[in-house]
């Protein structure tokens, strides 16, 4: 007889309850909140954050962290805008270059972390500097994107019944989400990520290819944040070197609220999706409310983060007690 509520499932259960609770609470308080259009806007307005958070989930599952994701959003956004608008490149080629940048940065992070055992937060902090520096070097001013293909992409959407529509960024987000769920559950790579988070030394002794996996994880995070930057640029129809400032924190918050343990090993992509939804609901609710200011979002996220971290602490302690 399988139990539905196990200790491993507790965090994601809590996340689901919080998500549903917030949604219902907002829905009963604000008129029109329950509409399909609002629900699909959760996706469109947070696609970039979601894509970044998915990549970051893998990193955090290994017990690491990537602080460079927000800066990468700025870099890839300004790079695409610059190449397309100032250099008149084909947008697809420009995007490929931006994704390549993300991969290379991730490769550097992963190499330093896996081969020299440097602290992930330090290495990726340096990555943050590097990206911001390069982005500002390209252009300090924000660049408007007027390329027809790019504007088409921004306005592209699949109409759905009920006045809702699925934008290109939401489609991308959902695609990334599905691929990530598959990778984390059904591939040796995904399982190795979890095993490393459970204990790096054990993972080595079990014969897993730990350094390769770590490098791949950071590359994945780099590519995801570059893609997030591209989506962000399409969404705002511009590239901005300081775009995505502080987004690393939102992404980390989404991952943790989604039930992924910051010490690694426990968590899920689906949880991160719920975490992004929670952030989106809070944001939308605050907009709907009208009188509350936008900074309440940050405070609410911070408080939620604290509650979840305390809860995780409790779970970890309880686990230690039973195995000791």
């Amino acid at each position: 007889m399988k139990r539905l509520i196990t200790r491993e499932r507790l965090p994601i259960l809590a996340t689901s309850i919080v998500c549903l609770g917030l949604y219902l609470l907002s829905g009963f308080n604000f008129e029109g909140f329950f509409s399909l259009r609002v629900a699909f806007n959760f996706l469109t307005d947070n696609a970039f954050l979601g894509i970044i958070a998915v990549g970051l989930t893998f990193v955090i599952l290994t017990g690491g962290i990537d602080l460079s994701v927000g800066a990468m959003v700025g870099l890839s956004g300004i790079l695409v805008a610059f190449l397309v608008d100032s250099k008149h490149w084909n947008p697809i080629a420009a995007m490929a270059i931006a994704l390549g940048c993300g991969a290379v940065l991730g490769l550097m992070h992963g190499y330093l972390i896996a081969k020299f055992e440097l602290a992930p937060f330090l290495v990726t902090l340096a990555g943050l500097f590097l990206c911001r520096g390069l982005a500002l070097w390209i252009s300090k001013a924000s660049i408007q994107i007027k390329d027809p293909l790019m504007t088409d992409m921004a306005s592209f959407h699949v109409g759905l019944p009920g006045g809702a529509s699925l934008s290109l960024s939401s489609i991308l987000f959902i695609a990334v989400l599905l691929i990530a769920i598959y990778a984390s559950r059904q591939t040796t790579f995904g399982r190795a990520v979890f095993a490393i988070g459970g204990g790096k030394q054990s993972a080595v002794l079990m014969g897993l290819r730990v350094p390769q996996t770590l490098i791949l994880v950071y590359m994945l995070s780099g590519v995801c944040s570059a893609l997030g930057g591209i989506v962000f640029a399409i969404y705002t129809s511009s590239g901005n070197a300081i775009g995505g400032t502080g987004m690393e924190l939102d992404a980390i918050a989404a991952v943790v609220v989604g039930g992924t343990l910051l010490s690694g090993g426990y968590g899920s992509i689906l949880g991160t999706f719920l975490g992004v939804l929670i952030l989106a609901i809070i944001q939308t609710a605050i907009t709907f409310q009208g009188t509350l200011s936008s900074w309440w979002t940050k405070i609410a996220i911070g408080t939620l983060l604290l509650i979840f971290m305390l809860m995780q602490r409790g779970i970890v302690k309880a686990t230690e007690r039973t195995t000791a």
């Binding site: 040796t188 399982r191 190795a192 459970g198 204990g199 030394q201 079990m206």
Partner: peptide, 25 residues
């Protein structure tokens, strides 16, 4: 024990050499 406590018992036994099909593990 040098295994991953966060993974299932079954997975720990097969980790790294899981049987795979067209849809992965």
């Amino acid at each position: 024990v040098n295994l991953a406590p966060n993974l299932s018992v079954a997975e720990n036994i097969c980790l790294g050499r899981e049987p795979k099909g067209w849809s992965g593990i």
